[in-house]
Write a protein that binds this DNA or RNA. Structure first.
Length: 271
DNA sequence: AGATGTTTACAGTGAC
DNA sequence: GTCACTGTAAACATCT
């Protein structure tokens, strides 16, 4: 039986960014993906601060979901009616945070495919300038990090976040008290939250089709070959009893359709 | 209509 | 001072 998340913030604003809060919510779910309203509910349930001014922070949260590549959108299946899509975490977004602290990210996560796609666009806004600069950094980082990256790739478990933050705040001599859950390090293999996305990342097709966005998969050539959907990526992860039972593979079964035979109205694939 | 998602803009903050 | 990240607001489009 999962233990409820404990926190000691009361009505004070938690020291977590919306990205961290959203990642916590997603990671705490059994299928590693949540609808927008479920993300809202998780935050409200666990952090009383966010029971106020909901319109304000929910707008910010939606902005973060759309703007940050670490979040990926998964369309609903036709037999799962409801508003909006599901949101999950990009499989490669684990190394975003500095020294495991979730108070501030080390750098903005940028998906490789989107990055390549963005190269052809003219940067006109401040964000675009930032993205272009980040792109150059990321493109340089891709190779070195893939060769020499020993950091956990999925650090978004709640207790991982809170535990890391506890260390961070302790180092800052914070007077805020934490009640972190006990940590236990477990090495295991974890598949990615979004099979469709991760699988596409692991196919040779991506190497030659890096410009394709998730929602553009239907544009891939009909002879594109895909690896089986349950491609497991070896990662180290830290989890507790709270998440252990849900730490493994999501029940999302991706389906790939080289031809647009099962497109949603918005051009996304059913899974 | 209301919820959801995208985009632009800008100010604040911390690290370097 | 610059850069990167974050939070907020707002306009707009799309979907249920």
């Amino acid at each position: 039986m999962p233990r409820p998340l404990r926190n000691s913030y009361g009505n004070a604003k938690p020291p977590y960014s919306y990205i961290s809060l959203t990642a916590m919510a997603i990671q705490s779910s059994a299928r590693k993906m949540l609808s927008l309203s479920e993300i809202y509910q998780f935050i409200i349930d666990h952090f009383p601060f966010y029971r106020e001014n909901q319109q304000r922070w929910q707008n910010s949260l939606r902005h973060n979901l759309s703007f940050n590549d670490c979040f990926i959108k998964i369309p609903r299946r036709p037999d799962q009616p409801g508003k909006g899509s599901y949101w999950s975490l990009h499989p490669d977004c684990g190394a975003m945070f500095e020294n495991g602290s979730f108070l501030r990210r080390r750098k903005r996560f940028k998906s490789i495919r989107k990055s390549y796609g963005a190269m052809g666009k003219v940067a006109t806004t401040q964000h675009h300038h930032q993205k272009s600069a980040q792109l150059q950094t990321n493109l340089k980082d891709v190779d070195s990090e893939s060769k020499n990256d020993t950091s956990p790739r999925h650090p978004f478990a709640i207790e991982s976040i809170i535990g890391s933050t506890e260390k961070h705040l302790a180092s800052m001599n914070s007077t805020e008290s934490f009640s972190p859950l006990p940590l236990s390090n477990i090495n295991h293999t974890m598949s990615t939250p979004c099979g469709a996305y991760s699988t596409s990342l692991t196919t040779n097709a991506v190497n030659t089709s890096s410009l394709y966005h998730q929602t553009d998969l239907w544009k891939m050539p009909a002879n594109t070959t895909y690896l089986p959907p349950n491609v497991n990526l070896p990662v180290q992860n830290t989890c507790t009893d709270f998440l252990r039972e849900s730490m493994y593979y999501p029940q999302v079964r991706p389906s790939f359709a080289p031809l647009p035979g099962n497109l949603c109205r918005n051009g996304m694939l059913f899974h």
